[in-house]
Amino acid sequence: MRSAFDFSPLYRSTVGFDRLFDMLDQSTQLESMANWPPYNIEKLGEDQYLITMAVAGFSPEEIELTQKEGQLLVIGQKKCSDEGKQYLHRGIATRAFKQIFNLADHVKVTGANLENGLLTVELKREVPEALKPRRIEINSSNGMKNLGQDKKSVQIEHGKAA
C-alpha cells in the first residue's frame, strides 16, 4: 500500500525534516500491520508513558524489546511448533509480529513486564540538565557602573595613552 500523500515537494523545500517525513510515510505504509498485536499508549504523567500490548500465548523469551535511535522495536516470534496438533477451530493468534514505536528525544524505556498476556513497557522522558531551560539573572544598570569603576582610568593626550 502506497502513501496517499506525496511528500516529495516537501523534501525539495525543507532541510533536516526527512526523518519526520519518513515517519509519516512509514505510518501510512504499515497501517494494516499496525493493528497486530493490539496495543494502548497511555500518558501517565508529564513525562511518563505506558505501552500495553496484548500478546497472549507469548512467553518473555519469545518477545524481544530493542530501543535504538529514537525507536522502540517489539518483535514476537513463537518458538514452539504446532506439528502433530489438529485444530477444529483456531482463534488464538500465534503469528509473529514486529511493531515499531517512534520515540521523542530523550524518551527512555524504564521497564517492561509480561503478565496475564499483556506486555507493558514503561517509558520516561529524561531531559539532560544541560538541555533544560534555565533562568538567566538580569543585572541592573547600577551593576554595570560598578564594573566600570574597578578599571583604572586611562588618560589620553594627543592620541597617546599615558
Score class of each variant (00 low, 15 high):
69 E>D: 11
48 Q>V: 05
21 F>T: 01
56 A>G: 12
15 V>F: 10
10 L>F: 10
66 T>I: 08
54 A>V: 08
59 S>T: 15
35 N>P: 00
66 T>F: 07
80 C>P: 00
12 R>K: 15
29 Q>R: 10
30 L>T: 09
19 R>A: 12
51 I>E: 02
25 D>F: 05
74 V>W: 00
71 Q>P: 01
21 F>V: 02
79 K>C: 04
53 M>Q: 09
30 L>K: 13
64 E>Y: 14
34 A>G: 10
78 K>I: 00
65 L>M: 05
79 K>Q: 14
24 L>D: 05
64 E>S: 08
66 T>R: 06
21 F>N: 02
62 E>T: 02
30 L>Y: 14
11 Y>C: 01
63 I>S: 04
31 E>P: 01
62 E>A: 02
18 D>W: 13
30 L>Q: 11
74 V>R: 00
43 K>F: 03
74 V>F: 01
8 S>A: 11
17 F>L: 15
59 S>C: 04
66 T>E: 10
47 D>P: 02
14 T>P: 01
12 R>C: 03
22 D>M: 12
51 I>N: 02
52 T>M: 07
55 V>D: 01
40 N>M: 15
8 S>L: 13
60 P>Y: 03
45 G>N: 10
33 M>I: 06
43 K>D: 05
44 L>G: 04
76 G>D: 04
53 M>W: 06
44 L>Q: 08
20 L>A: 12
